[in-house]
Structure formats: structure tokens, C-alpha cells
Amino acid sequence: MSCNKDYLNLMHIYLDGDISREDESRLRRHLEDCESCQKHFHELNRTITLMCSAERVEAPEGFTENVMENLPSEKKTVKYRR
């Protein structure tokens, strides 16, 4: 488990794009040998792929118009005050 923690941390550093070349090859070598870390790494990568396909929603109709109607009115006069 203590070995795992070290490599788990490396996996996350790798996923953030912060890993050094040296650590990356250390992680790769470990993944070749350790089935449970391999599975974990695969699950993390898959999680990221799944996350990217979460539901997309769009703003309701008339959204921009509603915002524009609710803007404070004093600013509207700015250009005339010059």
C-alpha cells in the first residue's frame, strides 16, 4: 500500500502534465509490473474521458435580453452626459 501511494501520486502529477522525465519512466516501469496500479491508472484515464462527455446544457431562450433589461439604467446615460 505504501508503494501504491507513491505511484498514485505520480499518476496525478502525470495527469497534470507536471511529471519529470525521470519520474515518468519510473511510473511506466512500475505500471508494467503492477497490475493493480495499472488498473487504477486505466480507471483514472477513463474517468477523465467520461467527465469530458458530461451533459451539455444551453442557456434558456431570451437569456441575453433578460440580462440587458435588468442592467442598471444609470449607466445608459453615460454617453449622453459627456
Binding site: V57, E58, A59, P60, F63, T64, V67, M68, L71
Partner: peptide, 14 residues
């Protein structure tokens, strides 16, 4: 500002 809202509305709403 309407164009700014319109450009970002979906992202911010989402």
C-alpha cells in the same frame, strides 16, 4: 454588452 452576454451565456449558464 449584449454581444458579450450572448457570447458567454451558454458557458456561464452551464
Amino acid at each position: 454588452f449584449a454581444e458579450v452576454v450572448s457570447f458567454y451565456q451558454n458557458k456561464i449558464f452551464q
